[in-house]
């Protein structure tokens, strides 16, 4: 049974590329357009992995991670940041918020698959 991944990004083309990459690796992917949309989808369905952007309207990635970590169902779920932010300060905030890992865009599809396999198999 394929693992379910929630991919959150306000950029339609990034969502499309993430979707294409992970589906080709055998994963089932659900999209969300921003943090708030992602939170709603996470409440309605349990995902094995959450992949989120940082800079998004309405709710950014860090706020989303904090909200997810308060939910019992997502306290241990891996959450990967996929963002253009690469500063150590932002990474520290992500780690403090509960992120599992930090990937900087533009991402390498092969490396994305490798990391996802490493995290959820």
């Amino acid at each position: 049974m394929s693992k379910h991944i929630l991919a959150i990004d306000d950029s339609a083309s990034i969502r499309q590329m993430v979707n294409f990459t992970l589906k080709s690796a055998g994963y089932h992917v659900v999209d969300a357009v921003d943090g708030r949309d992602g939170l709603e989808r996470a409440k309605s369905q349990q995902f094995d992995l959450v992949l989120t952007d940082q800079n998004m309207p309405r709710m950014d990635g860090l706020a989303l991670i904090r909200a997810l970590r308060e939910m019992p169902a997502y306290q241990r779920t891996p959450i990967l940041m996929l963002t253009t932010e690469s500063s150590d300060e932002m990474k520290s905030q992500g780690r403090a918020a509960g992120a599992t890992g930090w990937m900087v865009k533009p991402f390498d599809p092969l490396k994305l698959i490798e990391v996802v396999r490493k995290v959820i198999g």
Partner: peptide, 14 residues
């Protein structure tokens, strides 16, 4: 977009 982000591609697992 984070300022000075490109070229990117780095991965760090906490």
């Amino acid at each position: 977009v984070g300022r000075g982000a490109t070229p990117g591609g780095s991965i760090e697992l906490f």
